[in-house]
Design a protein around this nucleic acid. Structure first.
Lengths: 208, 208
DNA sequence: ATTAAAAGTCACCGATTGGTGACTTTTAAT
DNA sequence: ATTAAAAGTCACCAATCGGTGACTTTTAAT
């Protein structure tokens, strides 16, 4: 018969669970998803690995709970859909893509999750992707569809290439940095060129 | 004192080496680079793993030799640079990007190598990337620079996003398929939309 | 104080990892 | 036929992997 009194000097289930979850994030950021072994997680967390099975059932469920806990898309998209849109969403879209480019660049955990989702099939990863799709659909229907009309499909394809391109460039930069198409993405100058290209490409798409 | 007589009934060094190398490709295609363990390679090749150390020195050197042996870029770019270019390379560039999109889609080994190069740092992978970069530079200097003049940097940034985007879309399709920005990349219709977007974006860039 | 559940520890299991020494078999020059 | 190098096999090693049973310690209600 044990209840919690709040006196947590290390022997606290909820605190230990959070310790495991944050350790998953730490390892993910530093070593990638392939290093998420139960022994490493427990060692890094400073807790016994048996607790992982007791609290989460398995390592897989721990990872699932980590992915579910993280709300990667809250910072990247839907947070601020403007109430009034004059230019058919051109400025909004430009800013959204630029912010997304920067967000991915500075969020290493998200980078690793992106890479993870390109590497292996997993329910929790699929859920993240589905959320992103649903999130984007709101933008398409509310902002772009009214402006593009029957050209909306072309617009989708262009945006797919842009979003995917910005993802890849950030992933590429992190590992084999140097240059991509002659542009050094590790410099502010190089990244600035990408921002200009985003602005240009969105502008051209809206003049379709 | 052993020379080769060409009588190879399994006991042939060169044949065994090629067997190992092709096995690396096979595992890479089916399970990805994380599954390239020495035990698996030897088992799949039907040879003893000791031979890997004897012939290549280590598993890493075997992988390096595989990457060096494969010439992924020969089919994707430089093969046919037209002698005469009238439109500043617009048509050539459009076709090159479209072909690259299709090439990556059907070459699983290349997909895995791309993913590999986003995952871990390795000399042989870096060399592949450098080759690609040098390869692209020829196109920039010979075809696009004369046409774009001082706007060549913007052109680089646009092309970086396009190439990166096409890479990512193919990698994404392979694992978590379904849809990206509402486009189903597993259908011919979806891929056709991407080809149209490539054509459109290159066209717009040349009207810069 | 008793007690039962939860928190946490420890040692062990079988399977797999990378790697090597000692061995046998084949090859081909002498 | 002899012989030595190369081709190939087998058994073993230490380290690590995921996972579990048995244990001790703490907690808090009774």
């Amino acid at each position: 018969m044990a209840k919690k009194t709040g006196t947590a000097k290390g022997r606290n289930k909820e605190q230990s669970k959070q310790q495991f979850l944050s350790t998953v994030g730490k390892i993910l950021k530093t070593k990638g998803h392939t290093a998420l072994k139960v022994n490493d997680i427990a060692l890094t967390a400073g807790l016994n690995k048996k607790l992982i099975y007791r609290y989460f059932g398995s390592t897989e469920q721990l990872l699932d709970e980590y992915l579910h806990q993280q709300d990667f898309w809250s910072n990247v998209g839907k947070d601020s859909i403007p109430t009034e849109i004059k230019d058919g969403g051109q400025e909004f879209l430009t800013q959204m893509l630029s912010e997304q480019f920067n967000y991915v660049a500075q969020n290493k955990a998200f980078q690793k999750v992106l890479l993870w989702s390109l590497t292996e099939q997993r329910k929790s990863l699929q859920k993240l992707i589905d959320d992103q799709e649903a999130n984007g659909e709101v933008l398409f229907e509310n902002i772009m569809a009214p402006h593009f009309g029957d050209k909306i499909t072309n617009c989708r394809a262009v945006l797919a290439i842009l979003v995917a391109g910005l993802y890849y460039l950030n992933l590429f930069t992190e590992v084999n940095g140097s240059k991509f198409c002659g542009i050094d993405l590790k410099t502010e100058e190089g990244r600035s060129k990408i921002h200009q290209a985003i602005s240009f490409l969105v502008e051209q798409t809206y003049s379709m």
